[in-house]
Design a protein around this nucleic acid. Structure first.
Lengths: 210, 210
DNA sequence: TCAGAACGGAACGCTTCGTTCCGCTGTGGG
DNA sequence: CCCACAGCGGAACGAAGCGTTCCGTTCTGA
């Protein structure tokens, strides 16, 4: 964020600025593939030494937090983008697709519990919940009866679980999956939905170590 | 399987027979909650010492294999049960529901790669694939155009990813999820399914260490 | 020219975990 | 009525993995 210039300035400073980005990219990829990956794997993928990591972050947990918080912000941004779309159905579908493609939810799920959330993250999480709810409420008329906001979380959980040999293929298949799920959400057969719907309380348990 | 009597015979022999079952149950629960759980956690949950485990299985991998193979056999049994059902739609839906409730797929997914499959397991896996295919082909007329057998695996992947604070609640929510997915699979909107469908080759990669 | 920012990577110490081992106990066949 | 031993509990061991620190090196920008 406070990086003066993205990447193009020369010399040692430029190298350092480029490393900033490389480390974050590497961390996202590595921790997405394996949430328990060693920090050395991140350094290797970024093409830097371990000390380049520790120069920027006091410890592993801080890096994890950063990655996760960035994901949360991305989620919020996508929700805001979706709310600018006039048609509620298109808005919700597009939102789900973009969140799935950005792989934001995988981060949230896999990294939950591995670090202590900051108050700022709690605030952002609350905002994310508000935006999701608004998106959901707008689309409610086209949704199957009985579906609740927190069902969206489960849908994203399910999509995040789909894994293919390559990241590109994973994206393709997840979009296919979103299509099936969205059809399921927006089609109302006679049959009622089974079981009590999920509640927010049941979904936040991941954040507190068992 | 070759256990002479389930649990009711007295004395040391009976205790041992009861431990057999307790260890398997504990292993299923523990490895379901955390595939990388230490073997000591299994012993503790079963209420036995570590040596009681090593008396029965040469090593951790063997226990993992056993649990997973049992799950695969359960899968086959459920598929055969489903094939006895005359109505193809009911058969497929019931099959998915039962596999999800039995949590068989979670085992397969989470434990894949942690042990070397035996030839017998390979054979059973092939048989499972055949049965799934037959179940799928029978139901094809009611399925959305473009859906393929291997999409079923993805559906099960997604359901297995849903986690709730308690096992009971997890089952309930997963069934809700199956309902939504099944509706998505059996409803055919005008829109075509995106992306190339999954292939078997893409789904078996989990079994070979990366 | 040179102080020091930035870095690479070896080394350290700690934790975790699979496996082994030893000593104890209850039992069932003789 | 015994006692050999199946069955077991859990401490102990050794290996492996990982987060973090530390030291030597390089290159820059004032």
């Amino acid at each position: 964020m406070p990086t003066p210039s993205p990447s193009a300035l020369p010399g040692r400073r430029g190298q350092a600025a480029r490393n900033d980005g490389a480390i974050l990219d590497a961390a996202r990829e590595v921790f997405l593939a394996d949430p328990k990956a060693p920090i050395a794997a991140v350094a290797e993928r970024a093409g830097v030494g371990i000390s380049a990591l520790y120069r920027r972050y006091p410890g592993k947990e801080d890096l994890l937090r950063k990655i996760c918080h960035d994901g949360l912000r991305r989620y919020i941004a996508e929700a805001e983008t979706a709310l600018a779309e006039p048609d509620p159905t298109t808005a919700l579908r597009g939102f789900l697709e973009r969140v799935v493609v950005a792989d934001v939810h995988s981060l949230t799920i896999n990294l939950a519990g591995t670090f202590a959330p900051t108050p700022e993250m709690d605030a952002d999480a609350m905002r994310a919940a508000e935006l999701s709810t608004e998106l959901f409420e707008r689309a409610r008329p086209v949704l199957r009866e009985g579906i609740v906001v927190d069902d969206l979380t489960l849908v994203l959980d399910g999509c995040a679980a789909v894994r293919m040999p390559t990241p590109d293929r994973t994206r393709e298949i997840r979009l296919r999956y979103v299509e099936v799920l969205f059809t399921g959400l927006t089609t109302d057969p006679a049959r009622p939905l089974p079981g009590p719907p999920p509640e927010a309380r049941e979904l936040s348990w991941r954040w507190h170590d068992t």
